[in-house]
Design a protein around this nucleic acid. Sequence first.
DNA 1: CGGGGCGTTGAGGCACGTCAAAGAGGGTGG
DNA 2: CCACCCTCTTTGACGTGCCTCAACGCCCCG
Lengths: 211, 211
Amino acid sequence: MHAHTASRILPSRSSQPEVFDLAPLQPISFFPAGSEIYAQGEKAGAFYQVEFGAVRIYRLLADGRRQISAFHLAGETFGFEADTTHHFFAEAINGTGVRVFRIASGADISRQLLPLALKGLTRAQEHLLVLGRQNAIERIAAFLIDMAERQGGLRQVELPMSRMDIGDYLGLTIETVSRVFSRLKDKGVIRLLSQRSIEIVKQDALQTMSE
Amino acid sequence: MHAHTASRILPSRSSQPEVFDLAPLQPISFFPAGSEIYAQGEKAGAFYQVEFGAVRIYRLLADGRRQISAFHLAGETFGFEADTTHHFFAEAINGTGVRVFRIASGADISRQLLPLALKGLTRAQEHLLVLGRQNAIERIAAFLIDMAERQGGLRQVELPMSRMDIGDYLGLTIETVSRVFSRLKDKGVIRLLSQRSIEIVKQDALQTMSE
DNA sequence: CGGGGCGTTGAGGCACGTCAAAGAGGGTGG
DNA sequence: CCACCCTCTTTGACGTGCCTCAACGCCCCG
């Protein structure tokens, strides 16, 4: 874990701020783009709250195939594990500020953690439906709607991650992701403002496609 | 919820028995094959421990496509939710005995529930890798290994669910499931003892295929 | 012994993956 | 400030693994 502690506190864009009373003034660690926050097999014992930036949680197969199980944006919490070992990798996608909450041995924070764990469980199970039973257009539509909701439901949505990340999250190749984006653009459902920023033009059409 | 309370307590085949001290003597409810334990949208407020039989947790798309997010065998616990509403359906696959633990309002059982929620979260995230990045043979191999481990690691594995259930769990059609079973049989990796019972002949080959 | 659900097998099609090449940003150094 | 370069993205042509549609087989239970 190679983190630089930030000298000043940067503002959080959190849409759902979560406060933990066990340690009110944790310092913020800064992780450069692409840097590792923790690795699979590493000892766990903390949890993390994104202050700014974005994080990807993933797992690898021996031949390099990658599945991103979750993205975490500003305000969201991640990193708690079933046992004392991390089962996944966590990396900063862009320059990312993370508040690290070390769990003091003996401390019981199950009350705070349980709702977060349950929310994560529901999210993961819903994502199973996407990966198991939806086609490429439906996957992208569901992804865009989810990203829009997590950014406050605005029409303009920032995508902090690459096409490769999106593909590895949705179980698709970068080419398929790119082609579906183009098809949605041609249909007038979305506009590509820049490579990492889209505008949802026809919210209802997108909603219909995601079902 | 149409359950018949069992008149006698049947033995659990649990490999990982879990005991909750909040209510030591819950009665067992019996659910016939195919019956609903709870439905999506229903009010939550309990959790469930399988005594015997098997349960499927699933979600539906509007057009009937189904994704089973988890199977629960004897000894396993399910049914806790992030908010007060169920996000999934739960059905008995075969005749199934379930111990229902109602959560008294105000009671704090987060200490007991958190490890279960975290284990479920890890399981779901690992299943995401299977659905997102593995092909049909790898999915079936991983499924059989998982079922074998959960039944004590024996060579003979009981599959309480239909091919359709397996397909809806692995994101495959029944035909593909059946074809992969046949290919594994032809290769001598497994033997089909009956439709719902297989023997793992080459454990190591199966392990290799699942990676 | 007969019916019905579940499972298996085959033939053909299609959605997505693979391979390849060109295009678009954006970051850096001159 | 601009030009270059590197990486990411887009687009096209083609291949293939799984799905779809169809028929048959096998249990299991009456």
